[in-house]
Design a protein around this nucleic acid. Sequence first.
DNA 1: GTTTTTGTACTGACCGGTCAGTCTAGGAAG
DNA 2: CTTCCTAGACTGACCGGTCAGTACAAAAAC
Lengths: 197, 197
Amino acid sequence: MTDGRTRRREDTRQRLFVAAVELIAEQGFSATTVDDIAARAGVAKGTVYYNFESKTVLFEELLRHGIGLLTAEFRAAVTGLPPREALAALVRAELDYIRRYRAFAQLLLSEMWRTNREWQQTLRLLRGEAIEVIAETVRAGVASGDLPADLDVRTASSALFGVGLVVAVDWLVFQPDRPIEDVQEALLGIVRRVAQT
Amino acid sequence: MTDGRTRRREDTRQRLFVAAVELIAEQGFSATTVDDIAARAGVAKGTVYYNFESKTVLFEELLRHGIGLLTAEFRAAVTGLPPREALAALVRAELDYIRRYRAFAQLLLSEMWRTNREWQQTLRLLRGEAIEVIAETVRAGVASGDLPADLDVRTASSALFGVGLVVAVDWLVFQPDRPIEDVQEALLGIVRRVAQT
DNA sequence: GTTTTTGTACTGACCGGTCAGTCTAGGAAG
DNA sequence: CTTCCTAGACTGACCGGTCAGTACAAAAAC
């Protein structure tokens, strides 16, 4: 399983992911060429096609990997916490994730609301999984009376997800010199106020 | 000035704008071909290049036109209103605009945070102009004591702009059957709470 | 009022470059 | 020697941009 070969291959795939995510974040999927990805990863073009079926599949696996990680961190963040604390933990987890994987966050923000792309279904599905974790928390909060009863669970959940994304990426792109902790504070403040019963 | 020729040409340019904005909203700038745009507008490819210098210039003029309109509506919305009412009017104006030009809003959301694209400077500039209107309102509110003194004007303004965009487009793309008035209510509620002194 | 000229809007075949994907020779690991 | 993987030249489709030519309205000439 973790013999030299598998480890080496896993390493190559990882380098390709990193290269692809950076380039696609900057330029978008269509404007990014496979040659660029291979060059930045320091491998030959053939290696890309040895490791991935196609450019689209590489991107889909990238999305799966990236959002899977986010979903996992969401789950880890909320386990065992009461609703209102869990909500704050989710905001923190999202921003923490964005800080660590800023290129992926930027990519997500740009490609999330597209329609008519081959990988759109995949992305929609993955988005649903991540938001479901938020929705579970919100639902529990509404049921227990910790959150306002008139809160629309689906809307609130997707809004929370999107707002964190846009505010953080906006900060990263347009005011990159300022610390992300400030965004976190601002967002927590907003969520706290909105969550008031 | 408004003879047959100029009117005809203006009409063609308008049709090209409409076709381009829809296609780019769905697929992105790079994935949209000039042939597609021409076909949807019902003109020959050459006509695109008769009316616009290049694909990039067409897109830049599109951005200028679209954001210019938004900025104008922002200005019209705030004139003569006291800070807190002006802020609510801005939210209403933004959502009203997004409802009317949903494709353009979707396009903006997807291309706004890109880096390393030829037209990035243009977009950055235009974004600045639109946000400046918001910033003036916030600044006046902070100065007059109508808004919290510790509000960071630049951050608050760009956050307000971005949040309206994501929440509205998210709704349009993922829950298109529900009325946008609900989003407006939700957003106004949030802004009202955050703006509390 | 008719004919000729001119300028403008548009057309679509075509060109050159680019890019996703293929193929095969060869290097590394065991 | 065999197996697994990588390199990078190559191919064919596609796409941005060009250009010689058409259509047609309005002015100019008579």
